[in-house]
Write a protein that binds this DNA or RNA. Structure first.
Lengths: 142, 142
DNA sequence: ATTATACATTATAATCATTCTAAACTGTTG
DNA sequence: CAACAGTTTAGAATGATTATAATGTATAAT
């Protein structure tokens, strides 16, 4: 089965019409070896690099949000400037390089399981996320 | 020594002129028992409640950023909509209530120390932050 | 005390990411 | 093929934050 056919199937399975825009965005996001961490701006750039036909910015936003809702993508909170998304939707943590502004995945084995001893009455835990900020070793900190 | 005099001293010590706006903002932020988690909007509301004279929005932004730079405040990343700030600048983690959009501090003892086994070549760890998202137990998740 | 100067405050405008709108278009179903 | 719901689109609107530039104020020198 071709890559495209797989994406069409995936979209249809989750109740999203396989439009040509969505299939193209799937190719950019999911047709790759490694996890892809990106901002909307990164995605816009990739799309314009890979295809001649442009996709409207509104569609890119719509699609990313649709994909997030369907569980294809996960949003990562780093700062308030930008939204970062991750094609790896499993439970995992991140390193954030403050020099390059890039995210690096943290595997299951890179971090010991986190034991939370407190709980909030009437609330259940939806997620536990660890963000490890790193920066160049020889740089001054002001 | 009066509260005001303390704030004046604190400001001067870190090279900030103790203007009346800054002292007022100090009172709102630091003259309280518990840690204060807030957005700029929260702070604006508090100021208008506590004082007759208004402080310009630009000044509030400037002051919060100045205070953050001087280490009086810490920014907490939750999502890209809003910036949250915390008057507790020590290393600690948070619960985020997705129903009420409020932060709750996590004490040292509420979470076991996090052991990170991976390191990024040439980079040092600046911070390790855990965010635990919670929501009402009996609510559907869509 | 007065003055000079650098630092702060202010209202308003500008910016920038994101969302909304409503018209045109397209995939799907019968 | 027709009908309809779902989608895309350009451009406008929004909303948080930042820049601007004029006015005001704390501080240090006179």
């Amino acid at each position: 089965m071709s890559k495209n056919a797989k994406f069409v199937e995936k979209l249809r399975e989750t109740g999203l019409r396989p439009t040509k825009q969505r299939v193209k965005i799937c190719k950019v996001l999911f047709d790759r070896e490694k996890t892809f961490h990106f901002t909307i701006n990164d995605l816009v750039k990739r799309i314009s690099e890979e295809f001649n036909e442009k996709i409207s910015l509104a569609t890119i936003y719509n699609t990313v949000h649709a994909f997030e809702k369907k569980g294809y993508l996960k949003e990562i909170s780093i700062n308030s400037d930008k939204s970062y998304f991750d094609t790896n939707t499993s439970v995992h943590h991140h390193f954030y390089d403050e020099d390059t502004h890039k995210l690096i995945d943290c595997n299951e084995n890179d971090i010991e399981s986190i034991n939370i001893k407190k709980n909030i009455t009437g609330k259940k835990i939806n997620s536990v996320e660890v963000l490890i900020r790193v920066a160049s070793d020889n740089q001054n900190q002001n």
